[in-house]
Amino acid sequence: MSGMNVLLQKEFREAWRSRKFLWIPLVFALLGMSEPLTNYYMMDILEAVGNMPEGFEMLMPELVPADLLLATISQFQLIGLLVLMASFVGAISKERSNGTATLLYVRPISFGSFFISKFIVISAVGFVSIVAGFAASVYYTVVLYGTFEVGTLLASIGTYFIWVLFVLALTLMMSAAFKTTVAATAAFIIIFIGQIIDGLVGTFWTISPWKLPLYGVQLIRGTMEMSDYWWSLVMTVVLICVCMSIGVFSMKKNASSTKI
């Protein structure tokens, strides 16, 4: 891989200069904090907001730590992924449209190492983000509710990371293949409509990348059918590789559309 180190340094510096390494993890940490806190103080919040009828009583469900992790993950699934995808969907297409790419494409750098260097940096940001998010969520859950088993918790975080890798690979592929706006629309549709479809009729199949976040929580609960889990994991990893190869290919194809 020629020039891989240089490219990696460039990408890391760019991510650092645009403060993405700082604020995206902090957003995830906030999302992670909000779920256990609002659930724990729900009664107080309702009382403070007021307007409750006289003698109103509500039975709060008894939450176990895994429930809170699931709630946190569903926050990540919407807002977290939106932030991640929105900030990285321009990674390749913006360079093409503002002309930075001309400086890079004339050099003898393989498109493969170019794409992979971007992917590594983006997944590093994703990794730091979800670790920060889960750390915040787990901290509050442990303080307010109860403890986790370390092994299954780590497995769950790892599973979620694989899912985030898939999302990022797809985003980067779209970015390589289309202009920024089209790429954003396509990536959002595939990820979010996919989630909706999976939520509506997902009971009919058990193996899909969209199910991975849920499976991660089921690992903690200990109710996971392991063969489904492994097949989904394998499928996701294969899809990541497919996305990356399509991405490299379309990057090569679109190199001529760079603005000079």
Binding site: L30, M33, L37, A136, Y140
Partner: peptide
């Protein structure tokens, strides 16, 4: 409970 929030 409050310190991490303030910190962030």
């Amino acid at each position: 409970i409050i310190a991490p929030l303030i910190g962030v």
